[in-house]
């Protein structure tokens, strides 16, 4: 029997959906006699128990502390759980919060560690995690020689969220002593969208770093208008101030939630960009690099220069 542990997360009192995806990731490798426990740290952890009582979960560990995100506390909980239960795997979603605590917890445990894991399998009795490398152009299988415990951060939007309803045992765990060095001071909501609605748009033309220079942005703005598309962009375009942030598609920008046709020009297809658009049914990628990972999720691909394509496209609208 092995112990598997998921660290579920809440933000400002709201359970993060990605917790259910992480549960699904571990149930995919769970053996009949393994035990899966899900820990949640919150001001009112009991409030999340029901949502976490999904198929495959044997126990919910409720840690009553605070809704504030405190990496030091999360690390202390992970260390304590590991000491107590000697788990083979501890998993958490590869969200921004985990970026703060997972590597620190891993060194404190001297555990194995793989981040942004998109696949799990067991080969000859050993856990093998798959992740991407070189800007998503290759896949890498990773193992963890001689590690009793492996900590994984699991890529979001890969595993179908665990569903169903079980009746896990609920246990309470007192928050361990932790030297908390951070204090939550408040939130800064995203800047006003100024009427740009990536979430509502059905047709998006997105430009990436391939656009090269600020002065080139305008012609794509015009093309988008002529085609009846909303202009989207990748992060560098927004970071450079070439377009307002509200145009940005991706993990730290907008989700193209209602999009039916997404044309990506000069966008490489980083995981964070894909987060906002890979679900779109009709993706067209225009990129000079035939190996760009955007092609792996596209329905139509054009290996070519975005400026030439844009110029020719103008003639049709």
């Amino acid at each position: 029997m092995a112990n598997l542990i998921v660290i579920a997360e809440q933000r400002d009192g709201e359970l993060r959906e990605t917790s259910l995806e992480t549960i699904a990731a571990l149930t995919s490798i769970k053996q009949a006699d393994d035990k899966l426990a899900v820990a949640i740290i919150a001001a009112d952890p009991q409030a999340h128990v029901q949502a976490l009582s999904v198929d495959g979960v044997d126990e919910v560990v409720a840690v009553k502390a605070t809704d504030d995100f405190q990496p030091d506390l999360t690390e202390a909980v992970i260390v304590e759980l590991a000491k107590e239960r000697k788990p083979s795997v501890i998993a958490v979603a590869h969200g921004v919060d985990a970026w703060s605590f997972a590597p620190a917890a891993a060194v404190k445990l001297d555990s194995g560690l793989a981040t942004d894991v998109m696949g799990l399998k067991v080969e000859d009795g050993e856990l093998v995690a798959t992740r991407a490398g070189y800007a998503e152009k290759v896949l890498v299988d990773i193992d963890f020689p001689e590690k009793e415990t492996v900590l994984l951060t699991v890529r979001t939007n890969v595993f179908e969220p665990a569903a169903g309803s079980g009746s896990p045992e609920v246990t309470e765990m007192a928050p361990p002593e932790a030297d908390v060095a951070t204090t939550h001071e408040g939130w800064k909501p995203p800047a006003d969208a100024g009427g740009i609605d990536i979430g509502g748009a059905e047709f998006i033309l997105s430009i990436g770093r391939g656009v090269g220079d600020e002065s080139n942005v305008e012609e794509f703005q015009e093309l988008a208008e002529n085609m009846g598309a909303t202009l989207g962009c990748s992060r560098p375009i927004a970071d450079n101030g070439w377009l307002p942030k509200a145009h940005q598609v991706g993990q730290s920008g907008q989700l193209a939630a209602n999009c039916k046709l997404y044309i990506a020009m000069g966008v490489s297809g980083s995981v964070q960009h894909q987060w906002g658009m890979k679900h779109v049914e009709n993706i067209v990628a225009v990129n000079t690099d035939p190996e760009a990972s955007i092609f792996s999720i596209a329905r139509y691909g054009i290996v070519g220069d975005m400026f030439e394509i844009a110029e020719e496209l103008e003639n049709h609208f």
């Binding site: 939130w187 993990q251 920008g253």
Partner: peptide, 10 residues
């Protein structure tokens, strides 16, 4: 954080 939300922290 995700979705353009930011947390202020000391």
């Amino acid at each position: 954080l995700e979705g353009g939300l930011e947390e202020i922290m000391t």
